[in-house]
Design a protein around this nucleic acid. Structure first.
Lengths: 326, 326
DNA sequence: CTGAAAGCGCTAACAA
DNA sequence: TTGTTAGCGCTTTCAG
């Protein structure tokens, strides 16, 4: 391997001179040329380990994600990656597989690797995780969930719930069903639902609640059971995946959407746009969230502080799956 | 930061002894205990940069992917990640964004980072890339495309094409349309198509060809144009995404699948299973491919050599989108 | 079984 | 502008 030392010898200068050259320090034009020539000839590239050992940090950014096969997460990743690439950061991804234990391991691992910063795409979390995060010596930005005292970037979930509720109400629906997820997920399980439910209640309409998990599969299976007896004229699913599962079940039961009931989701990654019928949803800007996240993290790394809470807006997209009640 | 040196001092032994302890070398039980105690107290963790600087390599595995938002790639990633986690490897992901220039940059970057090995999820590639790969000093495994002289793990694409063709023929279809992609993609653009076309020709049936790209969107838009005039009774799309795009267009044109024409895809990630109607496809084992890839790469890293070509089988999954011709 | 010492490749004082 | 020197934290001979 070609080392700095070797370049120095060949060029007949000291290592430090070469180092200075590399780091744009003051070097005479003459030596500059000489060194450049030799570097070109040898194809020398600095050893990152040695650099990092000195600097005590790397140019890597750690990203912790809940799973690899989530379309929304992938859009976020795309956004993160785009800016990371521009800024010359390398991405180290760790998957916590929806397992709180692995979240902790990953956090520790990334800290140990001395990444410059961490973006944590949060899903579920508990108090010990929060503690661990607060004690981290590496700048960290949390995405998707709000955690007191830690820089967070979140969607406006409550408002999204309000938007869907207003939409349903404006179409004349008074008897609603909300298919939600566990309260352990604050953003999706609590905020979206509360925005929805509170708005519905304020309008004096009624809503019943059902709980499922995040999988299309379970949503589908449960829907097969409850759909035949559902009285509600509007079903609001907490995610597009759930909505698609319900739509599939409806199909199999020969129920027609939106004739038999209206259906909406949340998320807006293109999935819901290719389901049949296309499903009304609140479009979340995942890709932009990713870009924003990296931008904020960089600021956090550089300046050492950013506002603790930033939010991303979202938009109601009305599709044929919801209709005006006669 | 707690360093090895500090542990040594506190324990009243030499650094080397601590190091030996850490690496399971011969240490007396007495010192062993003493050191362990101090490590526990201080929460010491070895500095990875220093370790890597010595070892001249890291425990990281680099993965180069064409894009972040591909469901199939994500399944592969899931497989890779699962084994990587078990084996204690860290994953460094780089996205080449379907850009051959970035493929090269990423390759160079990963090599420079001295990852233990590289998994390249290949899409398009040219001769200079192949050259670069062959000169790489890091073990590399190519997934998804076959490259002469480099260890590759690929799907049986030709055979998949054959399977779909046989399926179509067995249903009595004689006039077929194949919607493919660029020949620059050897696996998808050439092999699948050839398997299909050659099988059809051997049966004396006819097939016309159309080319699109990998996006659902373009497939949809093009289909809006050509579907009204299509004579074929069976359309074979080169990917599930394309098939879904076509199905969406058919819907908008009030064409019925499979009444007006049969439709199939390739891939089998759950997408096609939630489209309407469910689409016949060849199921590719992406997740298993990922696991297999890491397994092979590890073998390559450890033993220095593996067979140059390994393949993964696949299965025809018949769904309601294809029907027997009257 | 243990310690001293050299060195991985680089950066950064400090002197010259 | 340049060179000397001293580490960053760890592993690994080689003596003892």
């Amino acid at each position: 391997m070609v080392t700095l030392n070797e370049i120095a010898k060949r060029a007949g200068v000291a290592k430090s001179t070469v180092s200075r050259f590399l780091n744009n320090g003051p070097v005479s034009d003459e030596t500059r040329e000489k060194i450049q020539k030799i570097i070109d000839e040898t194809g020398y590239v600095p050893n990152q380990f040695a650099q990092s050992l000195k600097a005590q940090r790397s140019n890597m950014i750690g990203v912790i994600l809940p799973r690899f096969d989530s379309p929304s997460t992938n859009q976020v990743l795309r956004g993160i990656d785009e800016l990371a690439y521009e800024q010359g950061y390398q991405l180290v991804l760790t998957n916590s597989n929806l397992d709180s234990q692995r979240e902790k391991e990953n956090l520790a691992l990334l800290e140990r690797q001395k990444v410059s910063g961490i973006i944590w795409i949060a899903s579920l979390f508990d108090e010990t995780l929060v503690q661990q995060i607060k004690q981290l010596k590496v700048p960290i930005l949390v995405i998707g969930q709000q955690i007191e005292g830690v820089p967070c970037l979140v969607h406006q979930d409550y408002q999204a719930g309000v938007k869907i509720a207003e939409h349903a109400l404006s179409l004349g629906h008074r008897d609603l069903l909300y298919v939600g997820v566990t309260e352990d997920d604050n953003a999706v399980g609590v905020l979206r639902r509360d925005g929805f439910v509170e708005t519905v209640h304020q309008a004096g309409a009624t809503v019943s609640l059902l709980e499922t998990d995040f999988s299309r599969k379970l949503a589908y299976e449960q829907a097969l059971t409850y759909l035949p007896d559902v009285k509600a004229t509007y079903i609001a699913a907490a995610t597009d995946q759930i909505a698609i599962g319900i739509a599939n079940a409806a199909q199999d039961l020969k129920l027609k959407i939106p004739e038999d009931f209206s259906l909406s989701g949340f998320g807006g990654y293109s999935e819901s746009d290719y389901a049949y019928p296309r499903i009304t949803t609140v479009d979340y800007p995942f890709y932009e969230l990713g870009k924003k996240a990296l931008e904020l993290l960089k600021k956090l790394i550089v300046t050492g502080s950013i506002p603790l809470l930033q939010t991303m807006g979202n938009e109601l997209h009305v599709k044929p799956s919801t209709r005006q009640l006669d």
